[in-house]
Amino acid sequence: MTEALLKVENLRKRFGGVLATDNLSLAVQPGQIHAVIGPNGAGKTTMIAQLAGALDSDSGRILFDGEDITGLAPPARSRRGIARTFQITSIFHEFTALENVALAVQAHDGHSFRFWRAARDEARLVEPARAALETVGLVDRADITVRNLSHGEHRQLEIAMALATKPKLLLLDEPMAGMGAEESQKMVSILNGLKGDHTILLIEHDMDAVFALADQITVLVYGNAIASGAPDEIRANEEVRTAYLGEEGTAN
């Protein structure tokens, strides 16, 4: 087995009396889609925030590309190649779709102490931004102010903005949240298109999507990884079935 791109060792995060992340360990192999599933409140979004640097960890280590990044702030992690998307859409509402993505390109094109030339005229920002919009199928909507886009389009834009930073690792926090069946289908095909070229840590509630996309699945319950393996192993795992999959099955 090759060296893991992301290695999480004994990560912990406590909020008052709640252990949101409890001694979590996990390894993501390069080029794979690694899904993390678990019931609501399992600590999935907390984990993403810790990996992206938005939340400090109480203890444990995060190794990325062989380097300890546990203490780094979000911008520094972004520069090392970690991109995240948000469960609740987080974009620049006053900007057009193209400007949203161009700003993400700009973040990785040197410093921004450039005061004179109009950013929208810079081909080296606009062209990669268009390419990222193309990848997620949003290029037709490039010049629309994003507050006027639909929810599904916002979710696509989230992915485009993350891709525009040319990441080595994508942290996707429920990319299909709030989507209808048709939109979900579209998102699955977008993510399928990224497979192989990108390493992805995917959090998702849509089990059809997870089993269609993932190379590896980790099951999180109360901040702790109770199982990890290939989709077939997870499907067959008794503990997982009782803790999660069974529940989900009857709940739906």
């Binding site: 979000p74 972004s78 520069r79 987080s90 974009i91 006053e94 900007f95 700009q106 005061f115 903005m161």
Partner: peptide
């Protein structure tokens, strides 16, 4: 309208996202 201007407007609009994309 410059790169700098886009950054300060982005930070007004959504600071968490600015951090996440690397600013």
């Amino acid at each position: 309208n410059s790169r700098f201007g886009m950054v300060i407007q982005g930070a007004r609009s959504n600071e968490a996202r600015m951090q996440a994309i690397g600013f």
